[in-house]
Amino acid sequence: MITVLLFAHLQEVVGKEKIILDHAPTTVRELKHQLQTRFGFEKLDQMMFAINEEYAVDEDLIKEHDTIAIIPPVSGG
């Protein structure tokens, strides 16, 4: 099981703060693929991803119980 956190417009579009997936995808790339095909997420190429609060690249591995965050382009400051 993994948790996928949503923020900003993604949170509003999906209507949830997080998505729980029963089975951990093997990599960030595989997670993106699932989000696109199963949940219809768009423009994931413009998002950053974090695993357990650290930025991750497509090749990074996802483990059971990891917390993934989808991070749209930031606009703080």
Binding site: F7, H9, V28, P73, S75
Partner: peptide, 27 residues
């Protein structure tokens, strides 16, 4: 990871990528 939502008289929007220089093509 901080995001700003602008509220205008005629609408609202989450603002992304203020620098407008990076597109993160590799995510």
């Amino acid at each position: 990871p901080i995001w700003k939502k602008e509220h205008w008289e005629d609408g609202e929007m989450w603002i992304g990528d203020q620098l407008e220089t990076t597109q993160y093509p590799k995510g």
